Simulated scan of single mutants.
Amino acid sequence: MKGAVVNNQDGAKKFAGLLRKLKKSPLPDPDKSNDAVEVLIKSFLIWDSTTSKASAAYKRIMDRIVDYNDLRVTMSHEIVEWIGPRYPRAQERCQRIRAALQHTYKREHAVSLDRLHSLGRREVKHYLRSLDGILPYVADRVTLLCFEAHCVPVDERLRRALITAAVCDDTVTVNDLSSWLARQVKAANSTDTHYVLQAWTDRPGSVSKKKTAKSRA
């Protein structure tokens, strides 16, 4: 990453040390669902938020719908009311969820991603990243947890936390940071690493509120 990591070697050492330290702390419960649509929705809710907020929001959504097709045809402002208007980036988040479900239905004639299990991992990643409303974090998290692809999902919260930990500087983008982290983590460890980092950013005080030079791009 050009200018993104404080120093490639130094950043790698700091990240390895950070992981060793973080692995000593309790992890959030892993997402055991094999339903890629469920993980997709949960990933949209976790993006730039916390696990506890996302879990509560997902439950509120599920309490109000019959199935995911029901959610697809629900207007985004109604979903905002369900999760609460104070939820981080509520309007954008709900618009993205609805857009992704609508595009999935248009492609599959159902709100289902089951067909992706017959595709290669590269095809799966391309498919998910081309969905309307999708975010790299959401696509990577679904690809990792449902299709066992090697990646490290990164959102703005994780980016800011790693900047604060001096693993990278504030010129790094989310996409570049995700690519760099994937090179630091073995494929067999990528799921555990995701949950370790997720638990870390869930902790109060781990994410700086100070705005940095770049964000999602």
Results as ranks from 00 to 15, higher is better:
T74S: 08
Q91A: 06
F15Y: 11
D114P: 14
L131I: 11
N69E: 05
S33Q: 05
D63C: 04
L128D: 10
K125H: 14
W47R: 13
V73R: 09
R86E: 05
H103I: 00
V6M: 11
V5D: 09
Y68R: 14
L116M: 06
S43N: 03
I79K: 02
S55Q: 09
Q9C: 11
A56K: 11
R107T: 05
V37M: 00
H126F: 13
L22A: 09
R115D: 10
G17D: 12
R121K: 10
G17K: 09
E92P: 00
S33V: 04
D10L: 14
K2T: 12
T51V: 08
L128K: 11
A54Y: 00
P28L: 01
R64M: 08
I46G: 04
R96E: 00
S76F: 06
T104P: 03
A4M: 15
S118F: 10
R129A: 12
L19Y: 05
H77R: 11
V73G: 01
I46N: 07
W82Y: 10
S33D: 09
R107Y: 06
W47F: 10
T104F: 00
D48Q: 07
Y58D: 04
D63W: 07
V39T: 06
R107H: 08
L19C: 07
I97R: 02
H109D: 15
H117K: 09
T104N: 02
W82I: 01
E92H: 12
T74Q: 06
E123T: 13
M75H: 09
G3M: 10
H77C: 06
D31H: 08
S25M: 10
A110D: 09
E81M: 04
D31I: 13
V66P: 07
V66I: 14
R20D: 03
R72T: 12
V73F: 07
A4R: 12
D114R: 15
E38I: 03
K23G: 05
I97T: 02
D70W: 14
S52N: 08
R122T: 15
S130Q: 12
Y87L: 03
V6H: 09
S52D: 10
D35T: 01
H109C: 11
D70T: 06
E108R: 13
F15I: 07
H126K: 15
D10M: 13
I79P: 00
N7P: 08
E123G: 04
G3E: 14
L101G: 03
K125S: 14
K21Q: 13
D67I: 02
I83L: 02
V111T: 07
S43K: 00
L116K: 03
A110Q: 07
M62L: 08
W82C: 01
N7Y: 06
A99T: 07
R86T: 11
Q9D: 13
R122N: 14
V66F: 00
Q102F: 08
K2E: 09
L116A: 04
T104I: 13
D63T: 05
D29L: 07
H117G: 08
K14W: 07
E38K: 15
Q102K: 14
V80D: 06
V66L: 11
P85M: 01
A90S: 09
E123V: 04
E81R: 11
S130M: 09
K59H: 07
R64E: 15
P30M: 03
R64S: 12
A99F: 04
H126I: 14
M62Q: 13
P30F: 04
K32M: 03
S52L: 06
L116Q: 05
S52Q: 08
L101N: 04
K53R: 13
G84K: 06
R93I: 02
R86S: 10
I97C: 00
K2I: 14
